[in-house]
Amino acid sequence: MNTNNILLRIENLTLSYGDRPVVENLSFQVCAGDYLCIVGENGSGKSTLLKALTGNRKPDKGIIRREGVRYMGYLPQQSDIQRDFPASVWEVAVSGCLERERKGIHWGFGYSAESKKRAKETLAMLDIEHLAKKPYNTLSGGQQQRVLLARALCASEELILLDEPVTGLDPQATKELYAIIRRLHQNGTAILMVTHDIEAALTESHHILCLCQRHPEKQNAAAPFYGTSAEYKASLSGDGCSCCKPEKTGPANPKILPPTL
């Protein structure tokens, strides 16, 4: 799948909380057709990294460059604001086209015919066309995530970045969402997903980036792991990655955060 067509290049990236660096000198690339999962403990900087990649946070050092892509889709973690927000599914989905709209003076809430077509096709692809007129806040958690995924796809079908997309979903909805993401990947969308769910990361993704937690007292914590899922799996039983190493024996304890509900 890896065609070496680089979409996103990250070089020597450093991100910190206050004085404490959570990500240091990180370099990796996201290529066309990649399915990359970013795993790591709480506080290891997974979400911070994603915020930096999506322009929601300034890197302290280093470079993040979009190379092969002009647009990217982002599925952030849901906020409280959204849960009771009066917006229709259509309004949410079509807002993903905002960056693609022609520049210049525009009046009102409407989108161009091109964007409307794009949003309509995306909703149809995710089987939520029939929900278009429904208020977003009346949908189930799984349906809401699909709508946000539709919005991300409206923004870009080349690269989407997902921040813990299955958090709060029941097992069935989780399975369905992973299936959709798998389908998108098969259709050629590069996926970059931050997740707690290491088991799913191992089965679903092709590459894994594991951010190891840097304890202030442990100066030389292990460097972040980057490799294929198979390599990562092998490293779990050995001494490869210190932060995710299994407690004592057996396979890693993957379900740090089981789906609730």
Binding site: K51, T54, G55, N56, Y71, M72, Y74, P76, S79, I81, Q82, F85, A87, E91, V92, S95, G96, L98, E99, E101, I105, H106, W107, G108, F109, Y111, R151, A152, A155, L161
Partner: peptide, 23 residues
């Protein structure tokens, strides 16, 4: 409000997404 209606919606609904989309 009229000119930025779509941006205002995007920023009100989801600032993180809006920012990632160059808003």
């Amino acid at each position: 409000y009229g000119i930025f209606a779509r941006q205002i919606f995007a920023v009100t609904f989801d600032e993180s997404f809006a920012r990632s989309a160059g808003c």
